[in-house]
């Protein structure tokens, strides 16, 4: 999740929709007061190598995470990431958690951006990436579909029957939509990694 006061947008990160690519690209134009939640051990290390650190995401966990990140200590980073997920304000934060952090006024005025993809493709993508060959693939796919349900997207951008996102980056039109987003937010034309 990114909340950029500098550019007036909030990026709500759904799952399995190229959200990390979008987040990495948008991170490069954020200011010191913007909120950048951690992405995960590997991506945060990559982002830190480029001089970009997560920031302003937690009053209690941030110092610990940054200390661990600066030491490139994965073992210390992981428990903080788990605590952050439990707190609700993590990479895939839902609207209410974001609203609580950024405040009602900015929440209302910001362009809320989300990426989305056909749920069948999201389910398959998740199943392929998480498959460890310890069970038959069909069984694993059943677990992804019927139990994990990471493909559900609407809770990130529909509240009380109303669509709260003002801009969608569609996975099947990723580059085109991202270019339109940069244009809409008056950002330089950014490249998706």
């Amino acid at each position: 999740m990114i909340a950029s006061r500098k550019h007036g947008f909030i990026f709500i990160k759904t799952m399995k929709t190229a959200g990390t690519s979008i987040e990495l690209a948008l991170s490069t134009v954020c200011g010191p007061d913007d909120i950048l939640t951690p992405i995960g051990v590997e991506h945060d290390r990559l982002r830190a190598d480029a001089g970009i650190e997560p920031r302003n995401f937690s009053d209690t966990l941030e110092a610990r995470y940054l200390k661990a990140l600066r030491k490139r200590n994965n073992k210390l980073m992981r428990p903080v990431l788990r605590e952050l997920e439990a707190s609700g304000l993590w990479a895939h934060a839902l609207p209410d958690a974001i609203k609580a952090r950024v405040g009602r006024k900015f929440w209302k005025s910001a362009v809320k951006v989300a990426s989305e993809r056909h749920p069948y493709e999201k389910a398959l993508s998740r199943a392929y990436h998480s498959y460890r060959k310890t069970t038959p693939f069909a069984e694993h796919l059943d677990r992804v579909v019927f139990e994990e349900r990471f493909y559900i997207g609407h809770r990130y951008y529909i509240q009380g029957g109303k669509v709260i996102a003002g801009f969608f980056v569609r996975h099947n039109l990723l580059n085109e939509d991202f270019a339109r987003l940069c244009n809409r937010l008056a950002l330089p034309s950014l490249k998706l990694p």
Partner: peptide, 30 residues
């Protein structure tokens, strides 16, 4: 292979039930 063809009919039906609002919003095929 399209995702639709890998998933079973019961898996597709379940996903559709869970994701009805986004199917409607984006006009996706079931």
């Amino acid at each position: 292979t399209p995702a639709r063809d890998v998933l079973s009919p019961s898996q597709r039906d379940f996903i559709y039930e869970q994701c009805a609002p986004e199917f409607e919003l984006f006009g996706w095929e079931r």
